[in-house]
């Protein structure tokens, strides 16, 4: 019964939906004038600031230009997303 349900529910993603998703993402990069060097510069500065207060794992640090939905929920807008794993807080800073 479950199998039958699965079979009925199974929906292969349309290739045009894949195309649209990929396009949206690539256009966010195309439309922004950020170069990879720019992103590296931002990354370096952010690390510098954060390291004043905490120890972070630079290996696992990930900063990307990606997309998010605008506040009114109507548009997809670019966003800078940083994932910075913290190893420990620096002593003496409260």
């Amino acid at each position: 019964m479950m199998d039958l349900l699965k079979l009925l529910m199974r929906k292969k993603e349309n290739s045009k939906d894949i195309a649209k998703e990929r396009l949206k993402l690539v256009l966010i990069h195309d439309r922004s004038t950020f170069s990879p060097q720019f992103l590296e510069m931002v990354k370096g500065e952010i690390i510098k600031v954060i390291q004043k207060y905490m120890e972070v794992d630079e290996e696992l640090l990930d900063i990307q230009l990606t997309k998010t939905t605008s506040d009114d929920g109507e548009r997809v807008i670019p966003a800078l997303v940083a994932n910075i794993p913290i190893r420990s807080m620096k002593q003496g800073i409260r």
Partner: peptide
């Protein structure tokens, strides 16, 4: 191809 979901629709393109 549009009908079987293998080509972007006009609305998809206009949306982008």
């Amino acid at each position: 191809m549009v009908r079987r979901g293998d080509m972007m629709t006009i609305d998809d393109i206009l949306d982008i």
